[in-house]
């Protein structure tokens, strides 16, 4: 009350920050936190004759011996192990290329690469289902009629369905990650590269000695985003392959949808969801630990 101007400038009503976050936090509590808690409680319940009864950990216990769930998780991790690194490396290479002084039309390229990420799911799905059609699709037409290669069962062969799925995801998200990395590259000071040039470092050395280390926080950010996205992967398998053939592209999120919306086992679906949340949390924590340990 008696402070001078300096003190007055620093102080703010204790209520102020709460007022600033209030609208968001209230909406968030009602429409995000509350449904999450409700569905979490549901994971301890099971349906009997149309009503829900408490079932303890039965839903969670059931998960352990559920082959389909384990297959789905394995698929998620396969995609995580193969598609995510490929996508991030591609994104990084394109970003470095676009950042190089040698290239013109940067704006046009940026837009071209980012375009797939902004396409509506419905449009994307219809286009890819037709393009990848085994007998009448454009992709096989080029492989078979023009390059004289055998036709590939893109969506119906267990191996190729996985490949096709990963191709589609890569198509959709590489540009998105590229833009994130490009933003990071523009932060790296040119002086670092000049110094390296004087030391006689080649392109490859500069890439590994300067670009990659300087970009580490950004790569980590993109990696965590991609990890969460991959573990929650739903759109592509739902539309392109319906999880088939023979569960080759079944993912955990698709399995949650099936258990809930096709088999009406919402309790079990919730249990799967929270196991998935736990896995994502643990993975993200490890990624931060490993990635963050020697930065800063």
């Amino acid at each position: 009350m008696t402070g001078g101007p300096r003190r007055r400038a620093r102080s703010f009503s204790r209520l102020t920050p709460y007022l600033f976050i209030a609208p968001a936090v209230i909406l968030f509590s009602i429409f995000t936190i509350y449904p999450i808690i409700a569905s979490f409680l549901l994971s301890f319940q099971t349906r009997q004759a149309g009503s829900y009864v408490f079932a303890g950990l039965a839903n969670y216990a059931r998960l352990i011996s559920d082959d389909y769930f384990l297959t789905a998780l394995l698929n998620n991790f396969t995609i995580l192990a193969i598609q995510v690194p490929v996508q991030l490396v591609l994104a990084l290479l394109i970003a470095v290329g676009l950042n190089s002084a040698l290239v013109r039309f940067k704006g046009a390229f940026r837009v071209a690469y980012f375009m797939p990420a902004i396409t509506a799911l419905v449009a994307y799905s219809v286009v890819f289902v037709i393009l990848l059609n085994t007998d009448f699709g454009l992709v096989n037409y080029f492989l078979h009629s023009i390059l004289k290669l055998p036709k590939i069962d893109w969506l119906a062969n267990p191996f190729w369905a996985k490949v096709g799925l990963m191709m589609a995801i890569t198509w959709r998200w590489t540009g998105y990650n590229m833009v994130i990395m490009l933003a990071g590259l523009q932060q790296i000071s040119g002086e670092l590269y000049e110094a390296a040039n004087i030391d006689g470092a080649g392109t490859v050395q500069r890439f590994f000695r300067i670009t990659v280390p300087m970009l580490k926080p950004i790569i980590l950010f993109a990696f965590i985003l991609s990890t969460i996205g991959t573990l929650q992967l739903f759109d592509e398998p739902y539309i392109l392959t319906k999880g088939g053939p023979n569960n080759a592209t079944l993912t955990a999120a698709l399995y949650i949808y099936r258990q809930g919306f096709q088999y009406f086992d919402f309790g079990y679906a919730s249990a799967i969801s929270y196991v998935l949340v736990a896995i994502i949390a643990v993975l993200s924590w490890f990624q931060l630990k490993i990635g963050g340990a020697d930065s800063d």
Binding site: V25, F28, I36, S39, L42, G260, S273, I280, A281
Partner: peptide, 27 residues
């Protein structure tokens, strides 16, 4: 701003990103 519960609330907001939307659709 510095205020009580700031980090707890912020972290609470962030962690919800991990929940798949299929789980919360019905509630």
């Amino acid at each position: 701003f510095q205020f009580r519960g700031r980090d707890a609330i912020f972290f609470g907001v962030l962690i919800t990103i991990m929940v798949p939307y299929q789980a919360t659709l019905i509630p």
